[in-house]
Amino acid sequence: MFPTSSQRKHWMFKNEDELQTLRVQANQNYIESYQDRLGPSAQPTLNAEDEKTLLKYYEHTMMRDLCKKFQPPMPKAVIGTAFNYFKRFYLNNSVMDYHPKEILVTCVYLACKVEEFNVSITQFVSNIKGDQKKAADIIINNELLLMQQLNYHLTVHNPFRPIEGFLVDIKVRSRLANAEKLRSGIDELIEKLYLTDACLLYSPSQIALAAILHSASKNQENLDSYVTQTLLGGDPTRLTDLIEAVRKIRIMSKPSDVFQPNRDLIKALEKKLDACRNEENNPDSQIYKERMNELLEDPDERPSARKFAKARRSMGGDKMTGVSAIDPNLSP
């Protein structure tokens, strides 16, 4: 149940300012470490706003180029869980430390496992253009890292079950003649909310109700009496809080708040990122190759999770990643 879940306890936040504080701190932590390590040779770095823009671009890309085009079709719960993982990871990590392209595909692959969408790694990477073998290695090498950064809080409560519950209740206890016609509007809002921080700020049931009321409004249906009297029993305190939450959720989904990629800006930020990223995590760098060779001294022995964890620690705090193999469609 959501009220007693790790999601409620550890991954829900009071407001967007709290999220911004965490992201700024992650950015500053990397910059300080990077400048201490390289001194005068350090390249100009991304600021927190630059990182936010890149992350929004990769969220947009994850939905457009991977989740929507995935074969076999990807269940909604997998998509929702993947977005939760991606947003959580970058609350405490910088894109300069871990490139979003590699974390993106790892989040989706781990979500497939957790939500029991049974696809093999071979089948998964067949949906990624480029060097699929190297892409598989990237995902496998980062899977343990991702779980560690999520504190092994892998169960995600998405809004889909509450949506189904509300629809059943509306059919039974409201005057709405055809509740099923709300589904397209519900899906529309949920998809927009994937590209916002709603899952870190509002409960699944609040998001579900916001989606239902959004769809009812689009279909020129009125569910006010259902919400105020049937659902909340006329309690004015609960009603005020709920109306405010629903209002804010719907505002987050407005076109002005949903990211529209500026390709020139993204290309400029990617170029800057390439110059200041952590080379210990760059599979094309010499230091990365040397440490991987140390890890794989015995070519006949498959590395264990413990060995990968040890290698990450030796690379500076659980850092072992790669990006170059992943689809040009996931590049600006």
Rank of each mutant, 00 (worst) to 15 (best):
L239P: 01
R161F: 06
L232R: 09
L91A: 02
M315L: 06
P303N: 08
N15H: 11
L91R: 03
T4Q: 13
P261G: 09
W11T: 00
Q260A: 05
K271E: 14
D17G: 06
N141F: 07
F89A: 01
Q71V: 06
V323E: 13
K101A: 06
A77M: 03
N92L: 07
K113F: 02
D241Y: 13
L146I: 01
P261Y: 15
L66V: 10
Q43N: 12
D284A: 07
D284F: 05
A179E: 15
H157R: 02
K87T: 03
S304D: 13
Y109S: 06
K289D: 04
F83H: 09
L265D: 11
F70N: 11
Y98H: 09
Q206S: 15
P73F: 04
F89G: 00
S314V: 04
R291Y: 12
S33G: 14
M63Q: 13
P40F: 03
I251H: 08
G317W: 13
F124H: 08
T61F: 07
L213P: 00
P44D: 15
E280V: 01
A325I: 03
M1S: 14
T122A: 10
N158D: 14
P255C: 02
K254G: 03
D327N: 14
T230M: 10
R64D: 09
N127L: 02
A305T: 08
L195G: 03
S205Y: 15
E290A: 04
E18H: 11
C276P: 07
L239F: 08
V227W: 12
L223F: 04
